[in-house]
Nucleic acid binder design. Structure first.
Lengths: 224, 224
DNA sequence: AGTTTCGCCGATAGTACTATCGGCGAATGG
DNA sequence: CCATTCGCCGATAGTACTATCGGCGAAACT
């Protein structure tokens, strides 16, 4: 039946069991449910064995968080790749929202974990989560640069970060609404996100002028 | 010195002490630091006394959460009132973002508490927090209706909710960036939020047409 | 084969917290 | 003035969890 296991194999197998158990627990509830003893029980090993693999409870949580958020970031990163394949530049823009939305909608537990933990300074997952957020922002800023947004100097750089933050926040909040059943049509959600870019895109011509001036210009253009 | 206290006075005084202690604890750390014993110690009463005033730890947390979020909502609600006083319609719009931003920036602990707790289903604060979020969305939808956004039928109503969600999320994420020191100029933040409305405002003319069509129209108008 | 290593485990000391109980003493009410 | 109420408290039972220790038995080494 079971081939004789080498020590290395056996140990890695047990470690994986523990991590898998912890993953299930953290995704189905919150971190407070992930106790060393609970994880061990769910992995069908003795409580003491837990500490053969992890120095402490927090040690496991950190390792787990890195795993989970790397996974999510990787999935989200495919959006750029997929968007490049789109025919028109309009479709490309839509795709750049559609894929992240689909990823979040397909991994609600992981998505919610990220949201939950983001603002908990004391959580062992907090660091990992905030690193993830920062990376996501950088990724989106890169997207914007590729789309031709100006990015010279700290001022323009900062504005790009603001735009990225807004795009991410809008995507997340609408994804959440979708998951809650409030916005059942993902196409409509994408439409809305595209509209948001129509606003933030005006920042491209921000050179020293205030938003009010810009706005007046645009309104005039539309009325003409 | 101290006048003789009636029983009622004494009891209310102690209760207030407990709530104040809990408030300090929850705002300076996270809920996990708010234990019945810790609160009692900080309020300088015996552990047993805690249970003379609250049935359980969760009982206190719920009462506290209602207090805190009601307080925050009330502060945010003043924004509409203040915005009405603005001279031009442009200034009015800016004010409608400026005041909430100022409120969030002035109450970072309370703001962060709301963010933290929002996605914790198991937290006793969760319910109260989500009620708060829902109310805030309703408030903003009302604002949009006042500003002339169409609101007949469930479709338009839903779109208003989406816009409100986006405006709130954008405000929150930029306020967070301000608190983190990333966006030190609140005026610039308001400018960006106004730009966002330039995008979402296009949804006013959504009547059955796709965002893509609308967009093409606007781009043409701007280029002409 | 004999010896060492090591992955696992049962038991348990230690910690932190919740919630209750019986009682003390001062305010309350006749 | 006496009996009662009640706000407060010290002590403590009960619960849940972390982390460690000594030891067992099978793999690894020689």
């Amino acid at each position: 039946m079971s081939a004789p296991l080498t020590r290395r194999e056996a140990k890695e197998r047990t470690r994986k069991r523990l991590i898998d158990a912890a993953r299930e627990l953290i995704l189905s509830g919150d971190e407070t449910r992930v106790a060393a003893s609970t994880v061990a029980k769910r992995a069908s090993v003795a409580g003491a064995t837990f500490y053969e693999h992890f120095r402490s409870r927090d040690d496991l949580l950190k390792a787990l968080a890195d795993d989970l958020f790397d996974e999510l970031r990787e999935k989200l990163a495919t959006s750029r790749w997929e968007a490049l394949a789109a025919p028109s530049s309009e479709e490309k823009l839509r795709q750049e929202f559609q894929t992240p939305l689909a990823v979040l909608a397909a991994n609600p537990d992981l998505f919610r974990l990220a949201l939950r933990v983001r603002h908990y300074p004391s959580s062992p997952l907090g660091d990992s989560s905030r690193r993830f957020s920062g990376n996501t922002r950088s990724d989106v800023v890169e997207e914007l640069v590729d789309r031709g947004y100006p990015h010279d100097g700290p001022e323009e750089r900062r504005r790009l970060e603001m735009i990225a933050d807004v795009h991410i926040a809008a995507t997340e909040v609408l994804a959440l609404g979708y998951l809650a059943g409030r916005y059942p049509d993902l196409n409509e959600v994408v439409d809305m996100l595209v509209l948001v870019t129509r606003g933030t895109r005006l920042a491209r011509e921000w050179h020293g002028r205030s938003a009010l001036e810009l706005d007046a210009e645009v309104v005039q253009a539309r009325n003409s």
